[in-house]
């Protein structure tokens, strides 16, 4: 029932094509003890809890005798807290640290210190922009293809006559959101198909429900002809949809972006957020764990072209990150676009 987007997968196949043909997939064997930490941007966000569930699933599957700790800072203390926790990981000489980075390049010195202490640093969800201090990034979907999908959703919502769109993002320095917005801007500018979609503003709700809600209302006031609010964050899209519902603006302004089916189902059914997209965070946590465990136990070297089998999810290949020079990634993909036809089934 899910509408699969295969762009990310196609890109991966094209990039890794030659090495894929000969490389034997490495099976990750369990049983070796390795202490690992899963560090989200901050605590209290459902998708990060789901990533933890996936990591715990892999942890049990691989019978890792070490510990897997899910640990994060409070939202107000995210940057300083992440730096503190990465530093602590180095002190503890952890085998692997799995980080969704919210501190931009400010995390690099502490991440490099962790690497120097022998800890494998695997980022997921949000990478270290410069790549310094990072062994590998587990990319949920190809960042360029997120731009295409968001542009497509916007186009179908403004219709053939075109219209105005504004972006409601998370924090101004979230590396992942910024990359997706840039990718969307590029698609809008380069492909004549999207000429009718006019991006009027980008605002930030700091991934807090109340701030995002107020930013969404401010957008509607500022741009009376606004037709789409595109929120590439699960917090922002829900807050924006609620704001439009509360103000009875749902027919006029549509909300879209990246959301969780369980949080968005009522807004999608009542038309406030007619379509949105997301990948499975549980899978992301699962795949991240397999890659990090492989690196930490020496079964993977982390070289470009290396292919490994991540349990139930199948084979993945390490490749150069097209968005960041000198950085390596594993591309998870694909992702799902949710509409009133499939959102109910996915929300359960």
């Amino acid at each position: 029932m899910k509408t699969k987007h295969v762009l990310g997968l196609t890109a991966a196949l094209m990039l890794g094509g030659t090495s894929l043909a000969y490389a034997e997939a490495i099976k990750i064997n369990g049983g070796t003890a390795a202490d690992m930490v899963l560090l989200p941007k901050f605590l209290g966000i459902l998708v990060f809890d789901q990533a933890n569930e996936g990591a715990q699933e892999a942890h049990a599957e691989l019978a890792n005798g070490g510990t897997l700790t899910f640990q994060g800072p409070t939202p107000e203390n995210s940057v300083a807290g992440q730096i503190e926790m990465v530093t602590t990981a180095a002190t503890q000489k952890l085998a692997a640290l799995m980080l969704s980075n919210n501190a931009g390049d400010q995390i690099s010195p502490s991440a490099q210190a962790a690497q120097a202490a022998g800890t494998k640093v695997v980022t997921w969800d949000s990478p270290i922009p410069s790549g310094a201090g990072e062994d590998l990034f587990i990319s949920q979907v190809d960042f360029g293809s997120i731009g295409v999908v968001m542009a497509d959703m916007a186009l179908s919502m403004v219709g053939a006559d075109g219209g105005e769109m504004a972006v409601l993002s998370a924090t101004p320095d979230a590396a992942n959101q910024n990359a997706w917005i840039d990718a969307m801007k590029k698609v809008l500018a380069e492909d004549a198909k999207y000429a009718g979609v006019k991006l009027v503003d980008v605002v930030y709700g700091d991934d807090q429900a109340e701030v995002s809600y107020n930013r969404a209302l401010a957008l509607v006031d500022k741009y009376p002809n606004l037709e789409v609010i595109m929120a590439p964050t699960t917090v922002g899209i829900q807050a924006a949809a609620k704001a439009m519902q509360d103000e009875n603006l749902c027919g006029k302004v549509g909300v879209s972006g990246l959301g969780l089916p369980s949080e968005m189902v009522s807004y999608t059914l009542n038309g406030c957020a007619p379509q949105f997209a997301l990948w499975d965070f549980r899978d992301l946590g699962y795949l991240t764990y397999y890659a990090a465990y492989g690196l930490a136990t020496g079964q993977l070297t982390g070289e470009i072209g290396e292919t490994f089998t991540a349990g139930r999810m199948g084979d993945y290949t390490i490749e150069a990150d097209p968005g960041r020079a000198n950085a390596k990634r594993v591309l998870m993909g694909p992702f799902t676009v949710y509409t009133k036809d499939n959102v109910e089934a996915a929300s359960k």
Partner: peptide
């Protein structure tokens, strides 16, 4: 110097 980068939220809170 310690984190090797600055952003608008340095020292917030």
């Amino acid at each position: 110097a310690r984190v090797g980068a600055v952003r608008g939220d340095v020292g917030n809170g």
